[in-house]
Design a protein around this nucleic acid. Structure first.
Lengths: 327, 327
DNA sequence: TATATAAATAACAACGTTGTTAAAAAGAGG
DNA sequence: CCTCTTTTTAACAACGTTGTTATTTATATA
């Protein structure tokens, strides 16, 4: 085990420092020598030792992702995407599923170049990290940790405004009604604000709660809602999975979209393309978020000063699921 | 940035080698000195440098977990549990969500002490690793990689045998019918074998397919099944989530468990306790799997030779969801 | 009190790499 | 053919730690 540059050096009959330079493609070593060394390295299966390398270079080309709640599937698509972008930039991501403090400590020991923190709830922690930390989702309770997030509130406001522009007044919101989860709470705030700004009176029946944001929950909630005599003209769904369930329920009741009922879905994930209906969505495209987060991580590594808090602006992706009541 | 043992040494007025020993709680340094050094280390916020440490000790006290399919939630609970056990043993886990080959390379560079590989599908890869690899789920196509898994086939056989013992003959299986996914295919094999061994003739209608193993899928499939005139006397559900959906559908049809219909669920996760009904389950308890996997990893690290393939035997957890037709 | 022995601490090499500096080899100019 | 550059390669220190060996200090024995 453990082929080192010294082994390569022996095989090639050069000094190990020459090998090091050849492997890093330094101009300080002649082309033929470089070729030869590279070939030998390949042949004897050389793998650079990160420990040694980062010991001297103080860089590990690794980003630590803290994701304590893997059991909740919420961020997995985003993390996958970010991982890809970082890989393109020559970085490796490593995920820790431990408590925030433990994870920060681990990543500091490993001298990752930056830490990306996903947190779902406002938990009470406090850590010190010599490695820069960027938080996605909700503002960390460490004020010095910059945060990036999608502007959920704005998205919901836009959704309401869009529906109102099409003449909708009986709008309902299907989603998680939780004070605990600030991400969900924010959406509801946006919904209410949107109503207010468009002079639509709010009432509690406009909020249909679901226990979780899964397909199943959307399905059940929608069926219960459709069983009532008074049906809304439009539904705002608070997540893609929820939307899937809503669509199925609507189909089961033989209602047409957007003929009988309009629907706009939060989340801007590529999967919407695959749905049976062409669904209008609002939100920050997953890919945009991934790109932004990646860039911020890279900037942070390069020591660029950044804003403390970045809110990504949502986009409406108009499809055919909302009916214009005026036409 | 970067408090090192040399800094501690200066503060304490001792040599850095003494500090190293004190921090590792070596008997070679006097108790008062140790105390003092520890205090100073704490005070100035010392964090050992993994790079340096593992460079010399060739150990990182880290286990690399390869989990390329984070978007599928299947293994998350198990990974969480394993992570806990390993933490108790002084190990840190790091998860890579990259392709198997990339992940193996990364973990080799990082010199983790062992690699735990989760793979869902038979993919065609081949890697070389100087670090020992243990695979969970399906046998790796690298014969030298030991595999540990739950005996799904046996579990299903036991489920059928149990139901047969209670007098059931109209048994159906609700689950994913996929040739692609060897884990699911194995369950079905067990189901069929169980039928055969108990002289129950098999027919295709006994297999109710679901697109995925989610709650929603179980719900829909069960409803469709209950709409037919001929209802089974017992259902075998192939996952916990599926079971949740099945229960809801049954409830919606005002059928009683086990009065009208019996149910036994695969998966042996602690959450069953929280279900509305007391459900009989079959499978290897999640915790048992986690413990076994942890032990095998630790054994592997210590260089103990192990069997190439370990199949964990399932247990039946009898509750009140299966009716005895003879009584 | 001098000496042998044990205990505690210090010094140093090593791990595998990189960056800098020194040395050797090759070319250019007279 | 010798000197002066320039190119290429070699040598070496450093990164922060651990394990081994050497040195100092304290303790026990005669």
């Amino acid at each position: 085990m453990g082929v080192t540059i010294k082994d390569i050096a022996k095989h090639a009959g050069v000094s190990y420092s020459t090998v090091s330079k050849a492997l890093r493609d330094s101009p300080l070593v002649k082309e033929p020598t470089k070729k030869k060394i590279l070939a030998i390295a390949e042949e004897i299966g050389y793998q650079p030792n990160v420990a040694a390398r980062s010991l001297v270079s103080k860089k590990s080309n690794t980003i630590g992702v803290i994701w304590p709640t893997i059991e909740r599937v919420a961020h997995s698509a985003l993390i996958t995407r970010i991982n890809q972008y970082l890989e393109d930039q020559g970085y490796t991501t490593l995920v820790s599923i431990n408590r925030i403090n433990t994870a920060v400590t681990t990543f500091n020991r490993f001298q990752v170049d930056a830490i990306l923190l996903f947190e779902d709830t406002h938990s009470d922690y406090r850590f010190s990290s010599s490695v820069p930390v960027v938080s996605y989702g909700i503002a960390s309770n460490q004020p010095e940790v910059p945060t990036i997030d999608a502007n959920r509130r704005e998205a919901m406001k836009e959704a309401v405004a869009y529906l109102h522009k099409l003449g909708h007044k009986e709008i309902i919101y299907i989603g998680e009604i939780s004070e605990q989860d600030p991400l969900q709470a924010d959406k509801i705030k946006g919904f209410k604000q949107g109503l207010m700004e468009n002079n639509i009176p709010f009432s509690d029946e406009m909020l249909i709660p679901v226990p979780e944001l899964e397909q199943y929950d959307g399905y059940i909630a929608t069926k219960a809602m459709l069983d009532k005599e008074k049906k809304p003209s439009a539904i705002i769904s608070s997540s893609y999975d929820c939307t899937k369930g809503i669509l199925l329920a609507i189909k089961e009741y033989n209602l047409s979209i957007p003929g009988d009922i309009s629907i706009i879905s939060y989340d801007n994930v590529p999967q919407v393309e695959k749905l049976e209906y062409s669904i209008t969505t609002v939100g920050v495209p997953l890919d945009t978020i991934a790109k932004e987060v990646t860039n911020i991580l890279l900037d942070t590594i390069e020591g660029k000063q950044m804003d403390q808090s970045i809110l990504l602006q949502p986009e409406i992706n108009v499809a055919k699921s909302c009916r214009n009541l005026y036409s």
